[in-house]
Simulated assay, not measured.
Amino acid sequence: MNKISIIKASPQSLVGGQLNQMALEYMAYSLAGTKDTSIIEKTFNKLWRSKRNRFSHEYAYEAKMQNKTLGMIMCYPTTLMNKLALPTFTQLFELRNWSLIKYNLQHWKEFYSMVTLKEAKNDESHIGTLATLPESRGLGVGTQLIQFAEEQAVIQGFSKSSLTVKRENLLAIKLYERLGYQRVGEINKPSLSLYRMSKILV
């Protein structure tokens, strides 16, 4: 059986931006300022290749088998994630200009939910996005990526790992609970309903 390896993500990855989109689902609309799938794809591919934003390859790891990417996880200290909020918006504005502003004025509830989202506490290492390609399902890729992120958190001196998950994503919730994550809060905002989950690592 071929072994899955987890490595630091590459800016040249052909699916990094796509995996971020998959993880974000409908939240990608507000970030890209459109529902046009081709524009969303271009926007997230550019963010992936750039540095100093929440969706950059800098903070991601890829699960690979025979040189093919099967999934991706993005993880960072909460304090770093919060510091990346403004640079991320700045880069999005540079990419989308006034189209971003126009979309979010028209869909202000989505925008409000995004900018006021408090995903994690400062003493946690946070899993920002996690996604696997459909062809990797059943291989345990998601589990391996989460365990790898937890190892990175411990190396960086954190004793807690956290993530958020959409309340309707029952399969993901089941996986996280199986891996030791517990629901520690709810985030209920216009057009956005999430569970906050956390795990004690050491």
Rank of each mutant, 00 (worst) to 15 (best):
T132H: 09
N122G: 11
Y195G: 09
M27E: 09
S99H: 14
I6S: 08
S136Y: 03
G128Y: 11
Q147N: 13
S161D: 00
E25C: 01
R52L: 08
K109C: 05
Q147S: 03
Y76I: 12
L84P: 02
M114F: 13
T90S: 13
N122Y: 07
L201H: 11
E41K: 14
L92Y: 04
Y26D: 09
H107Y: 14
F148Y: 15
N67M: 07
Q21F: 09
T164I: 13
E135P: 00
K46P: 08
S56K: 05
L201M: 06
L84S: 03
W108R: 07
L14D: 02
K118N: 13
S38K: 10
E186L: 13
T78A: 14
S10Y: 03
I4M: 12
Y103W: 12
T78G: 04
L31N: 01
G180Q: 03
N67C: 07
S113L: 10
E25W: 06
T79S: 14
L19I: 05
K8Y: 00
L139S: 01
N122L: 13
I173M: 13
M74P: 00
G180L: 09
E119Y: 14
A172G: 11
Q18D: 06
V154C: 13
I200L: 15
L117G: 01
E177Q: 15
Y176Q: 04
T79G: 03
L139A: 02
L100S: 07
L31R: 07
I6E: 02
V141K: 03
I40E: 07
K102Y: 08
T37M: 04
S5T: 10
I200H: 15
V184S: 06
S161M: 11
N45S: 10
N169H: 11
T78D: 13
I127G: 02
S161R: 01
P190V: 04
V15S: 02
S113W: 06
D123L: 02
M74S: 10
L133K: 09
S136C: 05
K160Q: 02
K8V: 00
I173H: 12
S161P: 09
E119T: 08
A120C: 07
G180P: 00
L14T: 06
D123T: 10
T69G: 00
R96T: 01
W108L: 11
H107L: 05
R196S: 07
S136A: 15
N67Q: 14
A9D: 01
N53L: 01
S99R: 15
E135V: 06
L163W: 11
G128R: 12
L201R: 09
S5D: 12
L105V: 04
G16W: 04
I101A: 15
L170D: 09
S191C: 08
E186M: 07
L24A: 08
M27N: 06
Y59P: 02
Q147E: 10
L130T: 03
Y195K: 10
K3H: 13
F111T: 03
S191D: 09
F148E: 02
K42D: 00
I6W: 10
M65T: 14
L84N: 03
K174Y: 05
T129P: 09
K160P: 00
Q66F: 05
R96E: 04
